[in-house]
Design a protein around this nucleic acid. Structure first.
Lengths: 110, 110
DNA sequence: AATACATACCTAATTCTTTTATGTATAAAG
DNA sequence: CTTTATACATAAAAGAATTAGGTATGTATT
C-alpha cells in the first residue's frame, strides 16, 4: 500500500528551502524534526535524503553553511543565500500552484 | 529554473487513477490531453512517462485494457479494475492529504 | 504532390532522487 | 551499562521520469 512518503519525490528540496526561508538558520536534523512535527508525523524526511540535498544546494550556491559546536555535538547550520531569495520564493510559489492543480484534478474523483 | 514538471514525480500514477475513476474508460493520449486542459497546460504528462505507467498498473491488476479501432487508428482504453476501487480511493485521499500538508508547510514561507 | 500537424501507440538509454543500509560520535536517561 | 536521542555522513540499489527516438494513420495546408 502507498504511503505519504511515496509522494515526497521532487518536493524535498522545496520543502527545505521554504523552512529555511521562514525560520532562518536551521540544521539538517532540525529540519527533519520540524517537518515531522508540523505534519503530525505524516511527512518524514529521511537523513539519507536530506543531507545529500543540503550538500547539493550548498554546492549550487543556494545555501550557505556554518558549523557550530553545541553541547559537545557539532551542528551544521544552513541558511539561504540572500541573492537566491527571489528564485526560492518563485520555486515555493510554483509548488503551491502545482499542489492546487493536483487538488483540482483529484478532488472530483472522490 | 525549476518548473511545474519537476514536481510531478510520484504523483503521476495517482493522477491517472483519479482521472480513470472519475471518467471511466480513457486512453493514454486522452489522459495527457485532459490533464493539460484541466490544468491550463501547467501539468503536462509526457508519453514516455504515461505509457510505461499504464502498462505497469495493468500488470499489477489495477487496470484493465481494451483495444478499439477508431478512424483507422488504434486506441487502447484503460479502466479501473472494480476490485481495486477502495485502494484507489484511499491512494487519492492520501495524495490530497499530502498536498494539504505541503500547503501548510509552504504557505508561511511566502 | 508534398509538407506539416494532430492523433495514437511504443520503448530504450540516461538522468536524477530517494530509499535502504550503514557508519561515526557525544549526551542523557534508565 | 545499555538504550535512546542527538547530529553528522556516505554508498549501493531501486525506481520514476526525461529525453529522444520510432511506427503509423488522418487531416489540413501550400
Amino acid at each position: 500500500m502507498k504511503s505519504s512518503k511515496d509522494f515526497l519525490s521532487g518536493t524535498l528540496r522545496t520543502i527545505i528551502l521554504a523552512l529555511l526561508k521562514e525560520h532562518g538558520k536551521m540544521y539538517g536534523y532540525e529540519i527533519c524534526q520540524l517537518t515531522a512535527k508540523l505534519t503530525h508525523e505524516e511527512i518524514l524526511l529521511t537523513e539519507g535524503a536530506i543531507y545529500p540535498a543540503l550538500h547539493k544546494m550548498e554546492k549550487q550556491g543556494l545555501l550557505v553553511s556554518s558549523k557550530v559546536k553545541v553541547n559537545g555535538r557539532t551542528r551544521k547550520y544552513y541558511e539561504l543565500n540572500q541573492e537566491s531569495l527571489p528564485e526560492v520564493a518563485q520555486e515555493i510559489r510554483l509548488l503551491l500552484d502545482f499542489s492546487q492543480h493536483l487538488k483540482n484534478l483529484l478532488k472530483p474523483a472522490l
